[in-house]
Simulated assay, not measured.
Amino acid sequence: MTVTSGPPHHLPAATDLDYVRTVDRTLLHRRALSEVFLTSAVQVDHNRFWAGAQLPPAHPYFTDHLVEGQVIDPLLLLECCRQAETYAAHVFHGVPADGKFILRSWTWRQLGRAPQLPDGPAELAIQVTTSNPQSRDGALRGLDYDMDLWIGDSPVGSVRLSASYLPGSLYGAVRAHGRGGSHPPLSDAADPLHRGAVVAPHLVGRVRPENVVLAGLRTEGEDTVADLRVLAGHPSMFDHPLDHVPGMVAVEAARQLALLVANDRRGSVTRQVVTSLHGDFTRYIELDAPTTLHARRDAEDPDTVRIAVRQPAGDAARITIGLGEVRPAG
């Protein structure tokens, strides 16, 4: 264990974390071992636990960025937090293996300068406090997670995540009811619905075109608008077939559009990094309906971009991205 004790980093359970192997991938709803980053989790009491994750030094999705200094992708840190939440819900709070997880909201805030990706794998420690439990018939139906993230003795950010849990036996009926009676298709059978050309990778801070999730870029009034490009075969975004677009994909699309919209602020996406984000998810993002993202800079803060994720049935999510200049820690 490499986390050294200090004034804010003092819970005894932190010294019990290890980074020797990853946890059972099925407890994280992952099929590929290459997409598992969580290595351990230790419960302190009913409302607190620590989790450890190893950040890969190279990854075809999470380290595919043009940003100077190769800072750690905040979406990689968010994914580690999602894995910690999912593991804890099953192991510490008794959510059944077939339970369905519903993301309601999450918030990321960078602390200090952007953490720089080391030459080798980095060891992340996550200090978690849970609150606001919701139960029905003795089963957990919702929980909030406040997470403080550390690399060594350095705090790198904080995350607040709110999730709901639905019994697997009810999920099909709930999904069909929300769709007016029809059952949703799975991602591996869904048809692409985006229009127009795929956005060039360098405009959204990417190197690989296979990681670009925007197409059909256009202007509508004061908004910059793009279609969501659903990459159903992408090994990180769709590790296994799903019946909706996951929240992480919506956040990635919002991040890409925010970088594009703010590109002229500092002259290049290579000098910009996400320093904060907040997302509220109000309905499932359906795979068989077109999805558009509408972005607009905040009138009072040009480094803040507000994005609405829209489908014909209405807004499915609202995401706010805060951007800052790259100043890697160290």
Rank of each mutant, 00 (worst) to 15 (best):
V261R: 12
P192Y: 06
A176E: 05
D243Y: 00
G6A: 14
L242G: 01
H240C: 06
T107Q: 15
G172A: 13
M237S: 04
S187C: 01
Y145Q: 03
A122D: 11
G267R: 05
F49L: 11
R21E: 10
A317T: 03
I102R: 06
S135M: 13
C80P: 05
G99V: 03
E79N: 10
G6T: 12
G322S: 12
L170W: 12
A51L: 09
I321F: 08
M248S: 12
P133F: 10
A53K: 12
M147Q: 14
Y284D: 00
A163G: 02
A295H: 03
I126V: 15
A189R: 14
V225G: 06
D280W: 04
A308Y: 02
S131L: 13
T130S: 06
L170F: 13
V174F: 00
G157H: 05
V23K: 09
I126D: 01
V67C: 03
L217I: 08
M147C: 13
H183I: 01
S158T: 14
D298H: 14
S169D: 11
G322N: 03
V273L: 08
N211W: 08
F92I: 11
G181I: 07
P115W: 09
Y19I: 03
S162N: 09
R318Y: 11
R109N: 10
V36Q: 02
D137C: 04
R306Q: 14
V273A: 12
Q134I: 11
D45M: 11
D315Q: 15
V23H: 04
V95Q: 02
I307N: 02
R179D: 01
T275R: 08
H240Y: 08
T130F: 10
G52P: 04
V273I: 14
T15W: 03
A176D: 04
R310S: 08
P184C: 01
L170K: 09
G181Q: 07
G221W: 13
T63A: 02
S276G: 13
S236V: 15
T304W: 02
M237F: 15
M1S: 14
P121M: 10
G112Y: 08
I126W: 06
I102E: 00
P133M: 08
M1C: 06
E325S: 14
D144G: 10
A215Q: 05
P121V: 14
G205K: 11
R195P: 00
D98N: 08
V213C: 10
S276L: 00
V3C: 06
A262C: 05
H183G: 01
R296M: 07
A58C: 06
L149W: 02
G196R: 07
G112K: 06
T219A: 07
D288C: 02
L11T: 07
Q43N: 04
L231N: 06
A114N: 11
A97L: 12
P241K: 06
A316N: 05
L27M: 10
I285M: 12
